[in-house]
Amino acid sequence: MSITDMHQDLTGSERIAPRSDSPHPKTVNTSPLISAQKLTKQYGAAQAVFSNLDIDISEGETVALIGSNGAGKSTLLKCLIGLLPHSGGQVSVLDETFSGRPQAAQARRIRSDIGFVFQKHCLVSRATALTNVVHGMLGRAGSWRGWHQAIASPAWRQSAMEALDSVNLVHKANERVDQLSGGQAQRVAIARALVRKPKLFIADEPAASLDPKSGHDVMQRFVNLSKKNNITLMFTSHDMQHALQYADRVIALKNGSIFLDQKSDDLTAQDLKGVFSG
């Protein structure tokens, strides 16, 4: 599905082309997008951050990962996509299966289908919004054209503008990131992730550096984009309301194991209190 389609989805217009234009036609795939068995992670000789986790996440799901500081949320996210090697168990993600660390070729294939969003926007602040979105193309073939918008191919520039449009920032395309508000910058970061046309969004506390209003705005857009484009979204958060409101499913880590894993519809804020107590 092209970004143009994403844009049409967002603006509410009718979807014209069926999804058969996708370069990777979807076979009916019952296996989960992410699947971890007996996943254990230990930094050096320290006590394991978590051990024997079993997690299955299906395509199109929006999952919130919660837990107190140091519970291992960031570590788990990185282990699930092979950015960090795990110490025990096995992970399958985006049809690549590995134990420990993925092979270089696997890692490349996994990365190419993921869009990342971090707590801080992690943009090049002296570059324009458009250049930063074009950066999303780095790591692809001929990716030197992703250094700067001025040398990007017309197709890449077009995709980048469409991605900016889907976060309503076309009017800021030529503005430097250090001139944008925190919420706008985070939306640019989402556009940078989106321009990769990923299958999976990985977001580590995407709203943590924002004020409550911008936080809701960014989460709302992010979740809408994921849903409309059938991109699986896994995000961590300290905000219980975000977890309940924007995720289909909430997974809580506590003391190195899964404390809770439920559909968010079945949960109340009261249920989540236990995650942080004791």
């Binding site: 890692a107 993921i114 090049v124 999303g136 780095l138 790591g139 990716s143 992703g146 250094w147």
Partner: peptide, 20 residues
């Protein structure tokens, strides 16, 4: 931070130099 973000998506050292 931007360097790490670009590294995560698989950008080469040279692309990180020129882009970030």
């Amino acid at each position: 931070e931007p360097q790490e973000a670009l590294e995560a998506i698989g950008a080469s050292k040279f692309s990180i130099l020129c882009g970030a």
